[in-house]
Design a protein around this nucleic acid. Structure first.
Length: 461
RNA sequence: GGCGCGAUGGCAGAGUGGUCAUGCAGCGGACUGCAACUCCGCGUACGCCGGUUCGAUUCCGACUCGCGCCUCCA
């Protein structure tokens, strides 16, 4: 089963072929750790986590790096405001990020490099760019000289003249060319910084990713992903740095993947609208799995409207999945001979079509409900579980899932007692009593189903 | 101004040159003492106008509307 991706660089769907048939290298832009991340930050983490899971099925080794940006002026500002070292801010929110991602069932990447641990590498690559004639020092700054690179703008599909025509930005006088961007800037007035050949200072934004990729993977990687707002300038500049910091022409990234943005109830998240929703706020109200379902319910390249309705529907969808698991609790799943052939894996192989994958999961659930043959049920359950694992679902036992957020006034023993009374009432044909007991239980968060085997119950919120 | 994206049934959201998405919600039915769960069935969906075609939601062109990026925002 071949894997295909939409590559931002070529603007079309392409067959994925890694440089090394046994090993895939991928890098995803992670958070700047200066506050709790919002739901928009969670989209690439969850989407490309699903990609990571898929790739691991197809290749012996997948090395996945997701960086932590812990050098940034927003961190500097937060630290200055609170009168603490930047490490206090960055460590606190790095920790918070890990917690949020864990709750969304995002697997830990293979490597989580930090900018502060790569300042030497950053300095090395800036030096190389200067040596190659692609960067220059000016008034304590080091700048990448954009006109020195043939093909700048290819990734974001724009040309310099058009950009300058629309620009209304004042050009800093230390720049040779208006498009030149900062690789290193001076730190004065007590700002955090590091010693460098160009004085005490700190790196620009784009260079850390290039440096970390070079350090951990070498000049070229298979996949680089992130939000589509990063295409320009961040990834365009990264690409320029990566390609120009080596002798001779070098590819930087073979497949660029970019996810679309998230809207909140139809509006773009923005500070002025005050509609930023943090992952933490959502996790306080909904299980991570439900949020994950919601994030995967749209194709990753499209805008996703993170509405109240979406969250509700996501819960219903997962309830159906868990009902299927509950109904087949007695069935021992038969694992797929080749997990890559599962219907979910196949839909994901087509440019990570997660809505189609969820539809496939619903298809399997329906078959599971209908099947009567035990061999067939075991096979279906195996495929269903494999699909769930790829999508990052099924971290609960079914009854535990339904009980999330449920009223716990009644103990299990209380419930069993009530059900015994109800069963007796039913035997006595005292349906008024049996129905009132059922309603009482329902009011206390206990749903019941009468089956041939007796009465089943589970808690529900 | 430059570059790009989108418009699918009440909602969400795939996909396809010609019988089918899928889920949620709704309606009818089966099951049930009644329910619940599950199952079966139902709704003349593809922005507008042309073109290509035996046939277009799908391809091509124009239009309308909405959206994104164009300096540190995933």
């Amino acid at each position: 089963m071949p894997i295909r991706f939409h590559n931002t660089l070529t603007r079309q769907k392409e067959l994925f072929t890694p440089m090394n048939p046994d090993q895939v290298t991928m890098y995803v832009c992670g958070p700047t750790v200066y506050n709790r991340v919002h739901i928009g930050n969670a989209r690439p983490a969850v989407v490309f986590d699903t990609l990571f899971r898929l790739l691991k099925l197809h290749y012996n080794e997948v090395i996945y790096a997701r960086n932590i940006t812990d050098i940034d002026d927003k961190i500097n500002k937060a630290a200055a405001d609170q009168g603490v070292p930047i490490s206090v801010i960055s460590e606190k929110f790095t920790q918070a990020y890990q917690e949020d991602m864990d709750a969304l069932h995002v697997l830990e990447p293979s490597i989580q490099p930090k900018a502060t641990e790569h300042v030497d590498d950053i300095i090395r690559i800036i030096t190389a760019l200067i040596d190659n004639g692609h960067a220059y020092e000016s008034e304590g700054h080091v700048l990448f000289n954009v006109p020195s690179m043939e093909g700048y703008g290819t990734l974001s599909n724009r040309n310099i003249d058009d950009m300058l025509a629309g620009a209304r930005v004042e050009i800093a006088d230390y720049k040779k060319d208006p498009m030149d961007f900062v690789l290193w800037k001076p730190s004065t007035g007590g700002l955090p910084g590091w010693e460098s050949p160009w004085g005490f200072g700190r790196p620009g934004w784009h260079i850390e990713c290039t440096a970390m990729i070079n350090k951990h993977f070498g000049p070229t990687i298979d996949i680089h992903a992130g939000g589509n707002d990063l295409v320009f300038p961040h990834h365009e500049n990264e690409r320029a740095q990566g390609m120009c910091s080596h002798d001779g022409p070098t590819d930087y990234v073979h497949y660029w993947l970019h996810n679309g943005m998230i809207n909140i109830n139809g509006e773009k998240m923005s500070k002025s609208l005050n509609n930023f929703i943090t992952v933490k706020e959502l996790l306080d109200q909904f299980p991570g799995e439900q949020l994950r379902y919601a994030l995967l319910s749209g194709h990753y390249r499209s805008v996703l409207n993170f509405s109240d309705e979406l969250i509700v529907q996501s819960k219903s969808g997962l309830n159906r999945f868990y009902t299927a698991l509950k109904d087949t609790a007695d069935v021992e799943a038969t694992p797929l001979d080749d997990p890559r052939t599962g219907v979910v894996a196949q839909t994901l192989a087509d440019d990570l079509n997660t809505p189609e994958a969820l539809a496939a999961m619903h298809g399997l659930a329906g078959q599971l409900f209908k099947a009567t043959d035990n061999v067939e049920r075991a096979r279906l359950k195996g495929e269903f579980l494999a699909g769930g694992a790829l999508l990052g679902f099924f971290h609960h036992q079914p009854n535990a899932w339904f009980a999330i957020g449920a009223d716990m006034t009644l103990s299990d023993a209380d419930i069993e007692q009530k059900l015994t009374e109800r069963t007796q009432a039913k035997k006595d044909k005292n349906f008024a009593l049996s129905d009132s007991i059922r309603q009482e239980l329902l009011d206390l968060g206990v749903e019941i189903q009468d089956t041939r085997a007796g009465t089943e119950w589970h808690r529900s919120s």
